[in-house]
Structure formats: structure tokens, C-alpha cells
Write a protein that binds this DNA or RNA. Sequence first.
DNA 1: AACGATTTTGCACGGAATGCATTTTTGCAT
DNA 2: ATGCAAAAATGCATTCCGTGCAAAATCGTT
Lengths: 231, 231
Amino acid sequence: MQRMTGESSAARDGLRERKKRATRAALAEAAVRLAAEHGADNVTVEAISAAAGVSVRTFFNYFDSRDDAFVVIDADAGARVRRALLDAPAALSPLEALREALAVELAQAERQHELWSLHAEVLRASPHLLVRSLGAHMADEAGLAEVIVRRIGSGPAARDRAPSPADGDGAYEDERRRALDLYARLLAAVAGTAVRVSVEHWCARQDEVAFADVFREVFALLAAGLPAPSR
Amino acid sequence: MQRMTGESSAARDGLRERKKRATRAALAEAAVRLAAEHGADNVTVEAISAAAGVSVRTFFNYFDSRDDAFVVIDADAGARVRRALLDAPAALSPLEALREALAVELAQAERQHELWSLHAEVLRASPHLLVRSLGAHMADEAGLAEVIVRRIGSGPAARDRAPSPADGDGAYEDERRRALDLYARLLAAVAGTAVRVSVEHWCARQDEVAFADVFREVFALLAAGLPAPSR
DNA sequence: AACGATTTTGCACGGAATGCATTTTTGCAT
DNA sequence: ATGCAAAAATGCATTCCGTGCAAAATCGTT
């Protein structure tokens, strides 16, 4: 029942999925371009839909709100980060693994320099969209946290403890899982915040410093426990 | 031209300011109560305004959007945190000072237990509002970051360096200020994230643990540099 | 009491967002 | 290739959000 073509990923998901992705991308790109030109507030859903060649109603089949079109550039970036996190070397700490995964993704985003800078420009022009952007990343937080739990949970120390189903003290086990859940949530959320702050700072002082440097500086501060800057 | 009454804060700002605060609080409270009862999506601005006894148009004089009424419980909590941060003992690190300031504010919020839990309930029921809530805190971020800069900038080491206006190397000075700006932004943003994650985790596992404990656990993780949980 | 400043309100209007029925497109099996 | 079922796109109607503007009400001051 499988098509026997050798095409790897282009035709894996049928024409249907591809067209959906294309339409979504077209809508997002049209939204960003129009916003960069006329200001985000002066761009109607009708204009975006027209530029993308679909009806207004179809726009709302792809995005829950008008602002989401400005925010979600790459719909499956989150999935790639989760994958990278799972595939990361076990030697890396969770924070390091997440840093590397995000660095790769951000570098790739920066490579499409035109859309990336247009997007940054739009977000800087209208801060309420930056809020939304953060919200979009937050949707990933739950999935990201779960992946973090899995990465740590299936770690190297699974053999340290007897796998007894009825453990001596189940309360300890519960407490450990609770702490792990909190840690994962926090790490996922802080990582998203780190990305946002990096972008904001880099936008504010553009040309003054490379984005990648800001990004690594931020993660260094986090790994050091946010110590007061030296004098 | 100053009223000479000794009343401290009740009548300092005339009846006008007081009524504004009262109206704002009434709108916010009505919004939360209605949302807790009927679900946030089924609460119209008209209903909120009617419950608060003002016109619909007046609602929009106080809030930029309908969702903001669910989100901004206490309008000047940010100002209090900033004040507390400036008044904190110099011995505390920025992270510690911020932790204490937030802890005080959150404890006070938790004291009005009814509204606090209603609010938590509403946020849990409709995640898109939680996004907004985060956004509301983000508005404080800029002001908070500035206060952090001021706190550190006017720190104990101002005498370590010659106050020469034409310093030997202005580039170092610029770099130091840039790093300080990044640090302050990051700290402000991470603190907001920490509060949010604490609330989320506490909502998810209610009755299982006290909020204050979660809050301090989160800040301990941050201060430790987000180390991988022990096994 | 009267005046200036601020706030509230009503009205009108454009746009956002959703539900529903209809039409078109796609995937698959025959 | 052809028909069929699932999925997507579309048009339409409707409700609600959010804003600008001008008139009315309220407050502080003299």
C-alpha cells in the first residue's frame, strides 16, 4: 500500500499536506510583508488573504486570529527543536542541549535574512505583537517540557534504583516526579524567554553586536545563576 | 496650593482618582467573576460593563481590550515591586532582591484568597488568557529592567573607577553598559517567567504543595543555574 | 454659583471572528 | 479512468470588538 517512489520528504505527505503548508506560508509571508510596509495595524485580513490568493474565510481556517499571522513564521520549528533535543548527546546538560538546539534553529532562521529582519522590524514597531509572539512560543512550552522530562527521565541513572513497582516509599517517587515536572516547565519557559530577550536586546542595539553572541551571553548568564554583573 | 489635611493616602488624590481606581477595580472584578461562572469566552464587554455599572464605552476607556480586564487584577502591583526593589538592602543580589519583592507581592495577592483563586481558575480554563497575562507582566518588564539598572549602576563600586568624563577607553564603558542592559532585561524577563511557571505548576498540582514553596524552589533553581535534577 | 478641566456616555462605523451550508479539491479503491 | 468519501475552500450571515467624535455629566477651584 506504499508508493514506491524514492522521494524522501517532498512527497512523503501527499499533495494535500504540501498545499496546506504552502498556503500557510504564503499567508504568513504576505502578512509580514504587508505589515512591514504599511504598519501592522493598517493591514486587514482581507488584504492578507488577497495577497495570498485565498478567501478571507480560509485565512481563519489557518490562523485563530489576525495577529497570529504576523507571529508564527515557521509552524514546525518547535517540532524540530524537540527532535534535536531528543537526539542531543547524553553528555550535555539539559540547558546546554536546549541551547544548542535553539542556536541551530535560530541560525537557520537568520539565514533567510530578508524575512527574519522584516519580522524583527514588525515586532519592534508594534510591541503588542511581541506579546503575541511570546504567546506563540509558549504553546511550544508544554511540548518542550514533556520532551525535557523524557530526556532526563530515561537518563543514565535508571539503573541506580531498583525498578520495584511497589517502592519502599512512593512519596519520594512522587516528589521526585513533581520536582522534575517543575524543572522541565521552568527550563522550557526560561529558554523561550531567553530567546525573546536576546532578540529584543539585539533589535535595540542592532549592528552593535551579532545575534549569536547575545544568545550565548544570555545562556551563559543563565547557567551561572544570573549573578550580579562584575564591576 | 496643597491641601493641608494630614490624611495619608486616602484623600491625597481627590475623589476623582479614587473613583477611577474604584471603577477600574469594579470592572476587573466583575470580569473575573463572570468569567469564572460562565467561561471567559461567553462573557461580553456589555455584560462586564453592566455588572460594573458603567457604559460599554467607558470599559474601553479603562482597558485596551476585553481580555485585559481578565488579566490585570492589580494595576499598580508593578510600581510596588519597583519600589521594593529600590528599597531593598544593598547586600542582596539582584536576583535575591527581586525574589523577595515578588514574594511579598504574591503573598499579598494570595491573601485575598477568593479573587486570587478565581483568577487562577479562569486562567487555567482558557490558556489564551494566560498568554495575555504574561503579556501584562511583560509591560512591566521594561520599567523593571530600568530599575534593576539603576540599582546596580548606583551600586557600591562607583568609587572603584575614576569618575573621569573622558575615560581612558570609552569602548569598555559602552560594553559594560550594554552588558548591564542585557543583564537587567534578562533578569526582569526571567523573573516574570518564574512567577508564571510557579503559578502554572501550582495550579496543575493544587493542594499538593504550597505556592510559596514552589516559588522559592523556582528561584533556587534559577540561582543554581538550572542544573539537571539529581537522581 | 460659575467656570475650566476631566470623565462618562451615546452613536456610528469598520473590522475581527465564528457557524453553517455549499462547492471544490484531494486521496484512494475499484 | 472513474466514482466515492474525506477534507478543504468558499460565501454568507451574524455577533462582538474596538475606536473616533461630539454632547452631557461630574469634579475641583475660585
